[in-house]
Amino acid sequence: MKKTIAIVTGTRAEYGLLKPLIKAIHEADNFNLQLLVTGMHLSEKYGNTINEIEADGFPITSKIDSHLDGDSDIAISNAVADTIKGFAQVLNQLNPDLMMVLGDRSEIFAAATAATIKGVPIAHIHGGETTEGAYDEAFRHGITKMSHWHFTSTEVYKNRVIQLGEQPQRVFNVGAIGLDSIAKLQLLSKTEFESAINFKLNKRNVLITFHPVTLEHNTSQTQFAALLSALDQLEEVTLIFTKPNSDKDGAIIRSQIDVYVADHAHKAIAFDSLGQKRYLSALQFMDVVVGKSSSGIIEVPLFKIPTINIGDRQKGRLMPKSIINCLPKETDIKNALNKAFTTEFLESITDLKSDYGTGTATNQIMAILNSEPWPQIKKSFFDLN
């Protein structure tokens, strides 16, 4: 008898990571896929990225509106409440055998909460990681405690999930699932990429993805202004901005991007979402990636280019030697950019190997789904000796 697996997706980036797994489960003879779409995918403000899912041909089982109408504390809390209510109704109707979630965002926490109360076992991808500057840290570990299967991206994170009391036989280090697409996707050539974004690259090219540090108060505007000042001193450069997610204070950064791009249209362009293919294709032609994105730490190093990681949002993650950490101040960011462009630093990362696996996470997860006993809803706490 076929088992039914519900997969939840709420953002453009997370969908790109999950796409190989969604495809594998959709095409498997022994599984039924339920694709549950929520969060930013359903918001015009964030690019209506549900269109990308539909264009890929995956059948969407249900749309759960998070009612994202702002980025204040109260607006996000209300969105979490609405998402829990929506998932409670949908899971009651669909009653899947397993729900799969990735990461640490508030809408994923909401989905996991509804599944826990409903009694639907959860498989969690990318648990055990730390992001000390964001409230995602608490959501991620909360999802871990609600989950029954765990697919981590490194051995360190596997051990941390076990440290949280999860049974070792239910925790698997499969590597970062985002690396799967890099190995398989046919990336665009430089000419094709320039055509796809309707913009010309320059002698130097910088990709910027800057998210707020959600455990700080009122720092986004000042920090992003410092970054813009540092970037503005670069010559013969193209700046490609991808706008932040629906995090607290994200609207402030989005507004700053819009103003900057309008004033510097000759060298800067911005996107709500590049989409997976354009984003990964862009990395082939970038000289540096700048901001506060997990992708800069996990996926970007495979392209042997530097990442400048600003501030504390990603603090605590395992970081390859291609990462240059700096304070969110103009002088520090400028110094980091100068270091990233040096021949010495570039030569030091030519032999870089990933800490996050080899791009086989989907195959490993599918093998586990097909071979391991499926988890029961009740679980016992694992105590370390």
Score class of each variant (00 low, 15 high):
residue 147 S to F: 01
residue 140 R to N: 12
residue 43 S to A: 14
residue 67 H to L: 10
residue 356 Y to K: 09
residue 132 E to N: 14
residue 194 E to P: 11
residue 184 K to W: 03
residue 282 A to W: 02
residue 29 D to L: 09
residue 211 H to C: 01
residue 109 F to Y: 14
residue 103 G to P: 05
residue 116 T to I: 04
residue 290 V to R: 00
residue 197 I to A: 10
residue 308 I to P: 11
residue 105 R to V: 14
residue 203 K to I: 11
residue 310 I to H: 01
residue 122 I to Y: 03
residue 383 D to L: 11
residue 137 E to D: 15
residue 182 I to V: 15
residue 23 K to Y: 13
residue 193 F to P: 06
residue 334 K to T: 15
residue 250 G to T: 11
residue 82 D to L: 14
residue 18 L to Y: 01
residue 164 L to A: 14
residue 377 I to N: 10
residue 112 A to H: 05
residue 274 L to E: 08
residue 262 A to G: 12
residue 56 D to R: 11
residue 44 E to L: 12
residue 38 T to A: 08
residue 293 S to Y: 03
residue 302 L to V: 11
residue 149 W to I: 13
residue 364 Q to K: 15
residue 251 A to F: 14
residue 161 V to Y: 03
residue 96 P to N: 01
residue 202 N to E: 13
residue 376 Q to T: 14
residue 307 T to R: 00
residue 72 S to L: 03
residue 264 H to K: 12
residue 114 A to H: 12
residue 358 T to A: 12
residue 9 T to Y: 02
residue 159 N to Y: 07
residue 232 D to P: 01
residue 299 E to L: 02
residue 254 R to H: 11
residue 344 E to Y: 02
residue 277 K to L: 13
residue 241 F to M: 00
residue 93 Q to T: 13
residue 264 H to Y: 07
residue 118 K to Q: 15
residue 297 I to C: 10
residue 228 L to V: 07
residue 104 D to Q: 11
residue 78 N to R: 14
residue 113 T to G: 07
residue 113 T to N: 11
residue 284 Q to D: 06
residue 317 R to N: 06
residue 346 L to W: 04
residue 226 A to Y: 12
residue 240 I to F: 01
residue 120 V to A: 12
residue 79 A to L: 01
residue 221 Q to G: 12
residue 353 K to Y: 06
residue 210 F to D: 08
residue 252 I to L: 01
residue 270 A to H: 03
residue 237 V to D: 06
residue 148 H to W: 03
residue 295 S to Q: 07
residue 176 A to E: 00
residue 48 N to A: 02
residue 370 N to G: 07
residue 156 V to M: 09
residue 121 P to T: 03
residue 212 P to M: 09
residue 125 I to K: 12
residue 286 M to L: 10
residue 372 E to C: 04
residue 332 D to F: 08
residue 102 L to T: 02
residue 264 H to L: 03
residue 227 L to Y: 04
residue 258 D to A: 12
residue 8 V to S: 06
residue 366 M to A: 07
residue 315 K to C: 07
residue 223 Q to H: 14
residue 373 P to N: 00
residue 231 L to V: 14
residue 137 E to W: 08
residue 6 A to W: 00
residue 136 D to S: 11
residue 84 I to F: 05
residue 257 I to W: 04
residue 138 A to D: 10
residue 23 K to P: 09
residue 354 S to V: 04
residue 4 T to M: 07
residue 267 K to Q: 15
residue 237 V to C: 06
residue 369 L to V: 00
residue 318 L to D: 13
residue 54 E to R: 14
residue 165 G to A: 04
residue 362 T to W: 07
residue 94 L to E: 15
residue 106 S to H: 12
residue 133 G to L: 13
residue 11 T to N: 03
residue 115 A to D: 10
residue 195 S to V: 06
residue 74 I to L: 11
residue 22 I to S: 06
residue 249 D to C: 05
residue 95 N to G: 02
residue 221 Q to H: 11
residue 56 D to H: 12
residue 98 L to E: 00
residue 368 I to R: 00
residue 155 E to C: 03
residue 326 C to A: 04
residue 366 M to F: 08
residue 239 L to M: 06
residue 220 S to F: 03
residue 105 R to H: 09
residue 34 Q to G: 00
residue 192 E to Q: 15
residue 256 Q to M: 13
residue 122 I to F: 05
residue 272 D to S: 13
residue 90 V to Q: 13
residue 160 R to N: 13
